[in-house]
Design a protein around this nucleic acid. Structure first.
Lengths: 228, 228
DNA sequence: TGCCGCCCTCAGAAATTCCTGAAAAATGCT
DNA sequence: AGCATTTTTCAGGAATTTCTGAGGGCGGCA
């Protein structure tokens, strides 16, 4: 289950170079040369990060960026923009539009790799192997261990993924469908009510000692994990 | 309450330039030329972001970065590293050590500003918009929370959508039909009178403490939410 | 193979919210 | 002041949405 990176680049040689490097780093790579198709691919299966060329066919990169940011589903995807020109204006426009980072060609692949890693560390902490925290709850993604107030908690696999999903998105209301996509996988064909059940199981496992429940149900919207 | 940025830079001229630019952007700025002192300042009052020069007195910037990342309290603070040399190795070391971004001198202040903004947007969503405001009412669309004067308000789904609808259109009179389209959906087949009821429920929920009513009824036209 | 843990589904109960219609109140106009 | 129109109030039933407990099924492991 490696992190997925979507490369949107119409220079075939560069695209292959990136794909090769990313694969070597252990990323799952998908790629396209077309902005329109990129949007479709993101909607179909949200990647963990996007490397997006400014100048691509059909739709300019910045427009792709804007579209992604506009849609709630994809608004949080980390985006690194790539450009040939060193225009300051472009860079600032790109960053203001919602890109997280901006790299000008020519660039060193290693630099790009490092920037992607830094960005993932920030945007998806569990992918970088750090420990997530919420109040007295600690979740270690690499060792699959969860503690509350120092006491180890026993969670099933699904409960673990569910908790991680919430801890990666503190304060954010997510719909059942989003939870299904994120925790079960995009193509899962599971009833939304099932989420309720697992939320309940997770709650029971976490609040065993009458602790405060970190998970808030938002009627007609979904659930959220609030900062305390 | 503006976001606070800590500038760690021993070149006095550059430090002043940064301070001036950041202040102009509305940031609260604190600064020091000394790495040791920087660590103390962070511990005393955690800033929302740090601009950190690689070459500073006493402690090298990368060591400051490492120290900050080691401590749980400060592990999440966004860090942008600044350096004179364009050495690729340095950049990669910096990013691997936990820096979020890495800018080489000479750089444009505007670029740095844009990068800080992008980083804050990622690290502290609450600081970078997404919260609508009207006087003492705050509405956070992503966490579905509403506060008035700091006190949390409990709104039902429809009331929430209704309030958001108004706060997205300050100072604008909207007809009942427009409200139905925007809040209930274009194809809703609901009596216009129903809007009245929900307006009332919303008012009751919002003005619980005898606060001023933000919603103005416009006879024969609809409703509006005025700026205060 | 048999046990065990976990996952998904189902369906009824419970809780909350929403809508409806009509009456009361307020407003504007003559 | 009196009338007409519009807005607000109100309460109960309808409709959603969520919660809960139980049960079958699948797969891992001894």
């Amino acid at each position: 289950m490696n992190p997925t990176v979507l490369v949107v680049e119409d220079d075939t040689a560069l695209c292959e170079l990136l794909t090769w490097n990313l694969s070597a780093e252990g990323y799952e790579v998908r790629s396209t040369a077309d902005g329109e198709e990129a949007l479709l691919m993101v909607r179909e299966q949200t990647p963990d990060a996007i490397v997006l060329d400014w100048m691509i066919e059909q739709v300019p990169g910045i427009e792709v960026c804007r579209q992604l940011r506009k849609d709630k589903e994809t608004a949080q995807v980390p985006i690194i923009m790539l450009t040939a020109r060193g225009e300051e204006e472009d860079m600032i426009r790109g960053l203001k539009t919602g890109a997280d980072d901006y790299v000008t060609k020519p660039f060193s692949p290693r630099e790009l790799m490092a920037r992607i890693e830094a960005l993932l560390r920030r945007a998806r902490p569990s992918l970088a192997g750090s420990v997530l925290q919420w109040g007295d709850i600690e979740l270690d993604a690499t060792s699959h261990r969860v503690r509350r107030g120092g006491e180890p908690l026993h969670l099933g696999p699904t409960e673990f993924r569910l908790l991680r999903y919430f801890m990666e998105r503190p304060n954010r209301v997510v719909s059942r469908q989003q939870i299904l996509d994120g925790v079960w996988g995009m193509d899962s064909d599971i009833d939304e009510r099932t989420v309720d059940v697992h939320i309940r199981r997770l709650r029971k496992a976490i609040n065993r000692n009458g602790d405060t429940d970190p998970i808030r149900t938002v009627r007609a919207a979904g659930y959220a994990m609030d900062v305390n």
